[in-house]
Structures are given as C-alpha cells and as structure tokens.
Amino acid sequence: MIPWEHLDTGPIPGEDTPLRLMRRGEEYSIFIGPTELMGTRVSASEKALATLVCARLRDRPRARILIGGLGMGFTLRAALDALGPDAAVVVAELVPAVAAWARGPLAPIFGGSLDDPRVDLRVDDVGAQIRRTPGQYDAILLDVDNGPEGLMRAENDRLYGLEGLAQARAALRPGGILAIWSQGPDAAFTTRLKRSGFAVEEERVRAHGGGGRRHVLWLATRPTGGAKPHSGLSRGRRG
C-alpha cells in the first residue's frame, strides 16, 4: 500500500491539535490527530448536502446561501452546479490553511469553483457569520465537524445547541433551510431542532454514493407562518 505523505499543517484557531493535509497517490485527506475528517475518496454525502437543498431553491430568485466549512469543496461545487446564475454563495471557513490549500495543492479538486463570481469565501467562524446576518439566507449548510457532537473544535458545539439553532433560524428567511451533515444519527439533536421551531426531515445517504456506510443529513425548514420555538428554548445548550 502507498504510504501517506504529509503535505502541510493548519492550526485551528483556539485549539491545540492542528489539521494535517495528507496525500496517498491521487488521494487527498485532511486529518485531525489520527482521525480522518474528510477525503477525496468519499464525497457523495457532502455533495448531497447541497443538491438536496438547492433542489428546493430552484424557484427562488437570487437565492442566497451560506456554507459553513469549505473542506475539499464538494458541497460548494454541487451547490454551484444546482443554483442559478443570480444566486450568491457565502462560504465561511475558520482555518486559514484550508482556504490556502483550496488554491494550492487541492486546486485541481476545486476546479476553479472559487473563481465563480457567485462565490464569496470568507476566512471566518460560520457562527459569527450567522449572528451578523439575521434574515439574510435562503439556506445554511453546515459541514464544519463530524456532526452535532463536535470532534474538531469544542466551540463547534455552540452551533448545534439551542442558542446556536435559534441564531441559525433567525438568519434564515421564512421557508429557509438549515441543512447539517453528520457522520451518524443523533436523536437528541433531532429533538433540539424541533424544539427550535424547525420542521425536520432526516435523510440517510450513502457515503460513497453506490454503497457502504450511510451518513445523516438533517433538513430543517423555518416555517413560513407564525410557528414559534417551544418554550423550553432558553433552558440550556443541550436541552
């Protein structure tokens, strides 16, 4: 077997363990410690995160979406393929090195998507982007960790708690969709989404597209009417 080659290291703001960009033949992966966060070999569910959402935005003129986590660009490219020419895509990537890799060793994988005039890449915390932009987005796509139970960064847990979900709901336009990628299911998180005032669908999608393990996508829609979050919203992060 071809051994992994370490190409670069990217510090994570506020964390001790950095990301590592690795290559093995034609395959690229990003690791944190011994754990692989993402790789070019497995991308079907990351693409589905965008295609399932953008299919629901086809009739919305000037759709505006926020993608949390640049990763290897699979979600971004799928979104650009599905959205119209008048759409706008903001990508918030916390780790500066990840943004640099997209224009460096991973440029062939990104295929020029960062040069698309619809794309605005910001090296920033997606949570901060959400808090600064109430009522701005038709969809928010989060793929910033292994799911609601954060692996990469403890601060990511805030995105998936009741306060973070309330902020995401406020950042969406009526009928907007909060979509979240996860390595696996989490019944408690589904409950938190519902308590936060979302209509929730849970999709199981193949990691490889054709077979193998399944990842979980939550599609949580902000109602267009007057539905309110449940009264328990203020009681703690985990609910």
Rank of each mutant, 00 (worst) to 15 (best):
R204H: 06
R222G: 08
G225M: 08
G226D: 14
R206I: 02
G212P: 06
H230T: 06
P223M: 13
P229Q: 05
W218N: 06
G211R: 12
S231R: 13
H215S: 10
G209S: 04
L219V: 07
S231Y: 13
P223F: 04
L219G: 11
G232P: 06
L219I: 10
T224S: 15
R206Y: 05
G210D: 08
G225N: 11
T224R: 15
G210M: 10
R206L: 03
V205H: 00
L219H: 07
E203H: 05
H208W: 03
G209F: 10
H215M: 07
W218Q: 11
E202H: 00
A199C: 02
G232L: 12
H215E: 09
G210V: 02
A199E: 10
R213M: 15
T224I: 13
A220T: 09
W218A: 08
K228C: 04
T221N: 09
H208M: 00
H230W: 09
E203G: 00
G226V: 09
V200K: 01
G212N: 14
P229W: 02
R213L: 09
T221R: 15
V200Q: 05
G209K: 10
R204G: 01
G211C: 09
R204F: 02
R206E: 01
A220R: 12
K228E: 12
G226E: 14
V205E: 00
G209N: 04
K228Y: 00
E201C: 00
P223A: 13
V205S: 00
G210K: 03
G226Q: 14
R222Y: 12
V205R: 04
R204Y: 08
L219E: 09
T221C: 08
